[in-house]
Nucleic acid binder design. Structure first.
Lengths: 138, 138
DNA sequence: TACTTATTGAAAATGATTTTCAGTAAGAAA
DNA sequence: TTTCTTACTGAAAATCATTTTCAATAAGTA
């Protein structure tokens, strides 16, 4: 499994595989840090100087649409993206270096049902995120 | 407990209580819907026509600093604010009308410890949010 | 190899937020 | 009360992120 997978996905969905998109995908694919569009732009331009920031925005939009990346919400801002986890996964973020870990196995059924009963809401989805310090930063 | 409480808090922290701030506080205090700066501006101007949008931004900033309001993160955007809950509370949001409910009593200790062990992270805080349809909208 | 049309980067437009600034008014002190 | 300092105000300008426009280019099918 490599970044080629993402390029194939783009192709299979009717999008063209271009040098600009390769550069963006190469930066984001498998990166364990959440990156903003500008950060992607800066890193990708090291490999492909002619890249435009607009193309970064457009490519991230398509990758998100194909569920290959997902937006990361943080106290400092909500414009960063990370490779999407497989299935129902949650994020653990290092507050210092921005490193991201995925985890699953949260069991919120009991809590969800209890809250649905108390509030009368029909609960459809949940967001759970943990913040802390990674092994390196602590 | 009324919006006067918030005005007192502003005063006690060395900020002045002005007509503009009263208008903003009157709109946000006790409101069960998350409101964006523009929405606060539109509603507050009904009571105080001379209000400027800049002052709304500045007042929201101070209310957040005093932990009287908190920012609400949603799939559609992260610029809205709601009266802050007391203590450690989480949000339940109606996807249709934006109504907000607070809840507490999540017990994530077991999960948190297990993930800390697996990842080597020192976990400091967590975000939990539920989304669904409120009793009216469902 | 030719040809259609999606994609590109640059520039302009947009929208949200922040800064600047000179006039105003809150509220402490007299 | 009145005075006086200075925090606060709204308008306009500046900034920053994101989106749209557009003519040139190149992906990839025919």
């Amino acid at each position: 499994m490599s970044s080629e997978t993402w390029l194939e996905q783009l192709h299979d969905n009717g999008y063209r595989v271009t040098a600009a998109r390769r550069a963006v995908v190469d930066v984001v694919y498998g990166n364990t840090h959440a990156l903003t569009p500008i950060e992607v732009y800066d890193q990708a331009r090291k490999k492909y100087r002619a890249l435009g920031l607009v193309t970064v925005y457009r490519t991230l939009e398509k990758l998100e649409e194909l569920h290959l990346i997902q937006r990361v919400h943080q106290p400092i801002g909500c414009q960063a993206f990370i490779s999407a986890g497989l299935g129902h996964q949650h994020l653990l973020l290092c507050k210092t270096c921005g490193q991201v870990e995925f985890f699953e196995g949260d069991d919120l059924d009991a809590l969800t049902k209890s809250i649905a009963r108390k509030t009368g809401y029909q609960i459809q989805e949940h967001w759970l995120q943990l913040f802390g310090l990674c092994a390196n930063c602590k």
